[in-house]
């Protein structure tokens, strides 16, 4: 008796978690990994919450994206919050993930800038940390901690804010203004990539996710 009640509560918790994740923009892969609900149930849940079918296709899989200028700062902010919640406050992994992502979004909204780090990216980031591909390195100038490839020598590391690359001055606002005038239907992640390309650097991230970010773009 008690057992079945418990599992009902557990089930409710799982559904609630899935709904929270869907609202924040989670793709099906994230939901399948993080909840024990069936694929069919998740699909239905997704349609109910969002009113559309979940997008298909692979999740981003490159660590390099997290090392590019804007994404690095956003990722570092998010992961710093996540780490505090889990390590200092004993929050459970996935709860901490959702809370940290909300806190991250909050800050970005306050700053009037775009949430460069989408939820699925944030989740991939978490997995990269868990598999030891990424680490936090301390900036020798501001003592903030920033996302880095694991095992990179970081004795003299200076972060992207303390020593921004020359192209980094263009704010997201300036960019979106430019967009408005050109009328381009650009998207969050695209804008980040637009910079290195324009400077002749190699575009750092994979193209897989790009067309799917549109939902989060929030054009008015």
């Amino acid at each position: 008796m008690e057992n079945s009640e418990k599992s009902l509560v557990a089930r409710m918790h799982q559904v609630q978690l899935a709904v929270n994740l869907i609202e924040l923009g989670a793709r099906l892969q994230v939901l399948e990994t993080e909840t024990d609900l069936s694929r069919g149930r998740l699909l239905r849940l997704y349609k109910e919450v969002r009113g559309i079918s979940p997008p298909k296709g692979m999740l981003p899989f490159s660590t390099d994206w997290f090392l590019t200028w804007g994404p690095n700062i956003h990722s570092s902010l998010f992961y710093g919050i996540y780490e505090t919640l889990t390590q200092e406050q004993g929050c459970k992994r996935i709860d901490a993930f959702v809370k940290a992502y909300r806190l991250y979004l909050e800050q970005v909204m306050l700053d009037d800038s775009e949430p460069v780090l989408g939820l699925n990216r944030a989740w991939t980031l978490l997995r990269f940390f868990e598999s030891g591909l990424l680490e936090l390195a301390e900036c020798t100038s501001c003592h903030g901690r920033f996302v880095m490839h694991a095992h990179t020598p970081c004795k003299d590391y200076v972060c992207g804010i303390c020593r921004p690359p020359s192209r980094a001055g263009k704010t997201s606002k300036a960019r979106s203004k430019l967009q408005e005038t050109t009328g381009q239907d650009n998207v969050v992640v695209d804008m980040q990539h637009a910079q290195p390309v324009a400077n002749g650097d190699t575009p750092a991230a994979e193209p897989v996710e790009l067309p799917r970010k549109r939902v989060a773009g929030g054009r008015h």
Binding site: I73, H74, S76, L77, G80, I81, E83, T84, Q87, E88, Q107, V108, L110, D111, D112, S113, S141, C142, H143, G144, R145, I161, C162, P164, A168, G169, T171, S172, K173
Partner: peptide, 28 residues
Amino acid sequence: QVQKIVGEKRDSAMMQTHASLLMSRAAA
């Protein structure tokens, strides 16, 4: 640290993000 944050000239949004990032660490 505070001087670094308020002394940033480039981008005020990034300045807030930076402050937030450093503060989340201050908690730890």
